[in-house]
Design a protein around this nucleic acid. Structure first.
Lengths: 297, 297
DNA sequence: ATAATTATGCTCTTATTGAGCATATAGGAG
DNA sequence: CTCCTATATGCTCAATAAGAGCATAATTAT
């Protein structure tokens, strides 16, 4: 009734949004996520995760949420290990110890996920490879169309992981070579990470995009007070697409999530009112449903 | 770089809907979920889970989705263990080996979650205990109101776990006694399960209720062909509340999820058309979003 | 002053949703 | 056969929410 002994690893995906840039806290100059083994000193999985992340990066995690647990295929006789990954939301702080610890724009790893500017630029880079993979198979063509919004299908921003996995399967992701997978000559653009850390990041992005639509987690990513445009930019950064400004304010104001601080923000044009979250929200909205305007364009 | 060795347990929550009853496949006459340790023979976590569940119950799991991973607080020196829980969707089959393996109505464990009939009956049973717990604390009163839709707040069907945890904290759940928690004299109604299995079931119910709204997972729970009322009853069983019949059909038809088989179902009144899922849906809708009408009443 | 830039208010059109009325088609009772 | 009951199915109407765009306000830079 016990099974064999294994090792458990805790992996964090610490996310922040700075200006219009969604960021991840990484080790090894952007190629690894903070991670460490579960130890007996850890009171809980989350506690162990926080300990490791803070020790490795010097940065405390804020809101933490479990993502997914996976196991390696037990190939090595050295014993199996399972990895438990977590999404963490914080605010970016300058990294004092430059020791290869750094915040990285997450679209550096997933250029095709950022559709805010020219929606087609990154796509043209992967389109040929996709077509080559899908050629001759109606089933593959259909999958590619659904994942990437081709042939009249709509782009679904939440499918980050599905897209990564499809590119992996199509041999357009460099990491695929570890798997003995055939790899095409021109790969999809985007920075590589060690082991399956890029895959975990894809999971985190997808989860955050889905979550932000019905839970007010954005608040974990913004400072104490902010303008409506700040809020909009933050959501756009995560969602990877732009929103209609006037409708965005209408919706936010209708939700009664915020209250004015009374101050104004300086800037190029007319000064904007500063807001903060209504304190009740943090307990209340954690339960009640919230819908934010995260549709296309 | 390795940490100490631990044990991993795989726990399944096999769900089916029979008629209007949401059901769970259990061991020990309803008091335990199928579970077993991860072993080196298992190719993957899911494979291990399926093996154990099938061995223990004789019933194969269908669609499987990871729920949550948690660790015990490492109190025993015997070594730590972590549990990885899964939601599984199948169809009920009669249990041939009566050996304490059985399908149970899940509202047997959570009577307050079924709001289809008289929405208040079960609540009146827990209301006094809740009030006693919340008396004197505005913060507790607010939490209770949000979780249970009191004082004008709306009932949020997804908060199954939050409600269970609040009742636990309020000392209204018998399992709380294991935790050294004080327990009130009259407990909330509902069948008890071993260890934290009831809590895992609560997690599964909440996840399924949330999921059913945007992914066509109901199809895993229904037979090959069914009437629109069958589909509605199935969704109502999971969601725990009733739906407006005409609007339900309007929505379903508008989604273009189904196709007629051409046959009719017999029954008390006018015969209903039989439908099946459009085969494309199973791949397509897994990606595109679907919204089902799961609002109140 | 003027241009450029951002904030903010308001309208208009088009879905989507919630609720209910009305009709159709079956079996069973009298 | 007719009426009653039960379920299926079609359709309307009002209230809301969502998408898009026009217009005006309040600043800073030139």
């Amino acid at each position: 009734m016990n099974g064999e002994a294994i090792h458990a690893e805790l992996i964090a995906v610490p996310v922040a949004v700075t200006g219009s840039h969604p960021r991840v806290l990484t080790l090894l100059d952007g190629s690894a996520l903070p991670a460490g083994p579960l130890e007996s000193g850890h009171r809980s999985l989350q506690a162990g995760l926080r300990t490791w992340a803070e020790r490795l990066t010097g940065h405390p995690l804020g809101y933490v949420e479990q993502l997914y647990t996976f196991a390696d295929p037990a190939r090595s006789r050295a014993g199996r290990s399972i990895s438990i990954s977590y999404l963490a939301l914080t605010r970016e702080a300058p990294m004092p110890l430059g020791g290869r610890v750094s915040w990285q724009d997450w679209y550096r790893c997933f250029p095709w996920e950022d559709r805010r500017g020219q929606p087609l630029q990154a796509d043209t880079a992967i389109r040929p490879g996709l077509d080559r993979w899908a050629a001759g198979s109606a089933e593959r063509r259909a999958r590619a169309a659904l994942c990437f919004g081709l042939d009249g299908a709509v782009w679904n921003e939440d499918l980050v992981l599905s897209r990564y996995e499809l590119l992996y399967e199509a041999g357009l992701i460099r990491e695929a070579v570890h798997d003995g997978h055939p790899v095409q000559s021109e790969l999809a653009p985007g920075a590589v990470m060690i082991a399956d850390h890029r895959r975990i990041l894809a999971t985190a992005i997808g989860r955050l995009r889905a979550k932000i639509r019905y839970r007010p987690v954005v608040f974990e990513l913004l400072p104490g007070q902010f303008t409506l445009l700040d809020l909009q930019r933050c959501i756009e950064a995560i969602a990877g697409h732009s929103l209609h400004k006037q409708n965005f304010r209408r919706l936010i104001e209708g939700q009664n999530l915020l209250e004015e601080t009374g101050d104004l923000a300086a800037g190029p044009g007319r000064p904007a009112k500063l807001f903060r979250y209504r304190p009740e929200i943090l307990t209340e909205r954690a339960h009640a449903g919230t819908r934010l305007p995260l549709s296309r364009i």
